[in-house]
């Protein structure tokens, strides 16, 4: 396990979704520059965890620390300003904005860093061609590119990717995952939630498995066994 100061430290997080408690005492860390995978069955609390980190669900301030600062109680826009960006499940692009406007608004905080409109277009050239089109008129895969590009435009220190392959064709998923190494790294850490366990393990350094709101397994992606994952996944 790396010994440096973690970029994100979650400790004893209890999160509620309305009256329903979705997370129970979840603790995890993300090291600088690392890709962390979070797996688990539907309803295990993965999305609640992502929404908690980015401030869409408010929590006890100290339960989530980003670069040492307690951010659990901040609003989503305050969290975003500190350098956490989310690619939300279902993409959720702005329908009234063109492709380019969706990207620009992702960078509207003006955080300095390597990502710019030009670099996003370099990464996904098709978006340059279609930059004037309303974002929701693109294909699913292209929309996912816009959603990733929109998050990158914020030049985040931590990128959260929630189910980015959901509803996409296998070749599109492959293309997006092939672009991933060019995205993370260079100091940016990433947390990735993925249904496809093999893919999650292949892109990440470490993995956490959630089960009914608890951390059921944590380990290095290369070391965990299928049996251990099956046990953590289904609670056997």
């Amino acid at each position: 396990m790396p010994m440096s100061e973690p970029i994100l430290a979650i400790s004893g997080l209890d999160a509620h979704y309305g009256d329903f408690q979705a997370l129970f005492g979840v603790s995890l860390t993300v090291e600088p520059g690392e890709v962390l995978a979070i797996i688990g069955a539907n309803g295990a609390g993965k999305s609640t965890l992502m929404r908690s980190i980015c401030g869409l669900i408010r929590n006890a301030p100290g339960a989530i620390r980003f670069r040492g600062e307690a951010i659990g109680g901040l609003r989503a826009d305050q969290v975003a300003a500190r350098g956490i960006a989310l690619v939300p499940e279902g993409r959720l692009l702005f329908a009234s904005l063109s492709v380019e406007e969706n990207l620009i608004i992702g960078g509207q905080m003006g955080r300095p860093g390597p990502w710019s409109l030009a670099r996003i277009y370099e990464l996904f050239p098709i978006l340059r061609e279609r930059r004037r089109v309303p974002a929701t008129e693109l294909s699913g895969g292209q929309q996912q590119m816009v959603a990733i590009g929109r998050a990158l435009m914020a030049n985040p220190g931590l990128l959260l990717l929630d189910e980015i392959s959901l509803g996409l064709a296998p070749v599109v998923i492959k293309a997006i995952y092939e672009a991933l190494p060019g995205i993370v790294g260079g100091g940016m850490a990433a947390v990735i939630v993925e249904q496809d366990i093999a893919r999650a393990l292949s892109v990440s350094a470490r993995v956490y498995c959630l089960q009914e709101g608890h951390v059921a397994l944590a380990g290095n992606s290369g070391d965990v066994t299928r049996e251990a994952i099956a046990a953590a996944y289904f609670g056997m």
Binding site: C54, G55, P88, S96, I104, Q108, A154
Partner: peptide, 24 residues
């Protein structure tokens, strides 16, 4: 304008606009 963009984005999806750093 940037302000108009913020208005349209917030009108579309308040929560996602918040993720862009726009305080609703």
């Amino acid at each position: 304008t940037a302000l108009g963009r913020a208005f349209r984005a917030t009108s579309d999806r308040q929560d996602v606009a918040q993720l862009m750093g726009l305080n609703r």
